[in-house]
């Protein structure tokens, strides 16, 4: 995951499978998709206690739903997304969100990223002068790629 490495992001994955099953999955399937196998820790949460703490454990099904959390260097959750099992995540969107949160953090909140922002697109500088003037700075077509 060189994209995440470049952004200084540590990926951690977790499911209710044991570490032994993680090893088998990596050895027999994932290493055929990713050269050298999965580069990040694949964590085990048999019983779903951690998933419960994060509010994404489906007790009835006994599995964890597709919860994805962005945690900043202070250990604060900046964003999350939770999907039911049949729909996979959009990795590019996770990257875009990390980039946006990093920009906000670097500017100490001096800049905010409006809807549709991605690197290179215009940010907004919240302040008294911007009140009622967002319409001059941001157009609805900027919400789309």
């Amino acid at each position: 995951m060189p994209e995440f490495e470049k952004l200084g992001v540590q990926i951690l994955s977790m499911s209710i499978d044991s570490v032994f099953v993680h090893k088998m999955w990596d050895d027999h399937e994932l290493s055929k998709m990713v050269d050298g196998g999965i580069p990040f820790p694949m964590m085990s949460d048999v019983g779903g206690k951690v998933g419960t703490a994060y509010g994404i454990y489906d007790e009835q099904a006994g599995v964890e739903t597709r919860g994805r959390f962005i945690i900043d260097p202070d250990g604060v959750v900046q964003g999350y997304e939770v999907l039911t099992p049949p729909v996979g995540r959009n990795v590019s969107e996770a990257i875009r969100q990390v980039q946006a949160f990093q920009l906000v953090r670097e500017t100490k909140g001096g800049e905010a990223t409006p809807s549709g922002w991605r690197p290179g697109k215009k940010t907004l500088k919240p302040g008294p002068d911007l009140v009622g003037k967002v319409w001059e700075e941001w157009k609805t077509d900027m919400a789309f790629d």
Binding site: F4, L7, G8, V9, Q10, I11, L12, S13, M14, S15, I16, D17, V21, H22, M24, W25, E29, D45, G51, Y54, I56, A61, V63, E64, T65, R66, G67, R68, F69, I70, I71, D72, P73, P85, R89, A94, V98, F101, Q102
Partner: peptide
């Protein structure tokens, strides 16, 4: 560090 924590339903 920034952390991306991903839960998923199951291996295989």
């Amino acid at each position: 560090k920034w952390v991306l924590l991903c839960f998923y339903p199951g291996d295989f």
